[in-house]
């Protein structure tokens, strides 16, 4: 369409200005952008810098510091598997390897069709019910390979 140029970009000015003057405003804005867009679009960096009176480098520094902020969209379905000790003790390493092998990707990667991302998470506080995972925002305890296979199949459809 010809007037595409005038469409608002995924910049979210409202989500930025809303937090100006608040304690930790930049973190709040980044969390809000990530939640809404699924990533923090680079186009937001200069806007954030201006709004919070910091340099663009500082904004990029904050984005890169935290695992939750990503510079590109993730897959439609995100599977986060706990990699910490309590889950290691009940087979998290093998479980992760199983899922990655099935999908043919590495940890932190997204499948070529953009459907599934598998990420590491360091502790979901389900340490007595491991191995633990978060599938599409849902907490899962005592996760088995079969359970992961099912989640992968459902996500792939």
């Amino acid at each position: 369409m010809a007037d595409d140029h005038f469409q608002p970009r995924r910049q979210g000015d409202d989500l930025i200005t809303k937090f100006v003057g608040e304690t930790g405003g930049l973190m709040r804005a980044l969390n809000a952008l990530q939640a809404r867009d699924g990533y923090v679009d680079a186009a937001n960096v200069p806007l954030l810098a201006k709004a919070f009176n910091v340099t663009k480098a500082e904004v990029k520094g904050v984005i890169s510091f935290y695992d939750d902020f990503t510079k590109a969209p993730k897959g439609e379905h995100v599977i986060r598997i706990c990699q910490a000790e309590a889950c290691q003790a009940v087979g998290a390493r093998g479980l992760t390897a199983h899922a990655l092998e099935k999908l043919g990707i590495g940890l932190g990667d997204t499948t070529a069709d953009g459907k599934i991302t598998v990420e590491a998470v360091y502790c979901l506080g389900l340490c007595a019910s491991g191995p633990a995972a978060m599938v599409g925002g849902q907490l899962k305890g005592r996760v088995s390979a079969t359970c992961l296979d099912k989640a992968i199949e459902e996500a792939g459809q």
Partner: peptide, 12 residues
């Protein structure tokens, strides 16, 4: 920010 693996008292 209870990040230690094996702990969940704060969460609970």
């Amino acid at each position: 920010d209870e990040g230690d693996s094996g702990t969940f008292a704060d969460r609970m």
